[in-house]
Amino acid sequence: MRIGIPRALSYYKYFPLWKEFFTKFGAEVVVSPPTNKKMLDLGSKYVVDEICLPVKVYFGHVNYLKDKVDYLFVPRIVSVERNEYTCPKFMGIPDMLVNIENLPKLIGPTIDLTKRDNKLWKVVLEVGSLFSKNTYLILKAWSDASMSLKKYNQDWLNQSFPEELMITNIDKKEQGVLNIAVIGHEYILYDKFLSMNLLEKLAKLKVSVFTIEMVNQKTINKEVSIIPKKIFWNFAKNAIGAAFYYNKMGEISGFINISSFGCGPDSISNSMTVHHLKNTQITKPILNLTIDEHTGEAGINTRIEAFYDLLKRRVV
């Protein structure tokens, strides 16, 4: 059995988990290749208009996979933490996919952990029942899979990029000339096409990059607790918490915010981050980058170069 996983959106957060889980049952996991222009073109054709670029690209990946696999894994991720939500588009993905013709069968479980009573293991058994009737085997596969995810996340927490992402960056042991915190969704940042290769451009300038994933969840929760109102968009909360944390870290000399044009949660989290950072005693420059369908890289290069010049003159 061949199961397709689009290399987009939640892929970057959970891929090792899903791959390990499906492989345990003898399934072959097929991942679409890194994003390219053709995928974007195909994605734009099928997706509803007025949607953000990462979702367009997701559709391109689905389109690439549709006649190469028996099943497509397209989870509806509503919430991964109590009383918090992911993003409206994540919640609607399986519904939007009906626009694509000749789709294979979908495995589209709803993952919604907003309420205390909603248990993840129920979803695991539901998906696992496609492969096996043995509850023990399913839960065992899940526990092994969770270990893979843990290792993947640990790479980040060790201040390096997981191998699976194929990101070359400055070796953290060999200190870069500048340290910059790059705040952005992993599905933008680690997709070289969407981010216009931002991480490697920074690596070429000998900049060490620090991202949201490199801050542990406990620290993030503690950092955001100074905001009087609870931030119920989970990704936004992580972005804000990480930015607050990096603001206090002396060796970080500036911030790059990268987000997609038309992202609702980002419009709030970016403003909140900027507003808060401006109100602290520490003033670190912030560069805002907005990506959309344009493929000309001149604009983004100019901004990165200028930001680099600015920081370098300040630091030296």
Binding site: F261, T283, P285, N288, L289, T290, D292, H294, T302, R303, A306, F307, D309, L310, R313, R314
Partner: peptide
């Protein structure tokens, strides 16, 4: 005389 902050229009 040193750039301390800048911004450019987005898309």
């Amino acid at each position: 005389g040193i750039v301390s902050d800048f911004a450019m229009n987005t898309v």
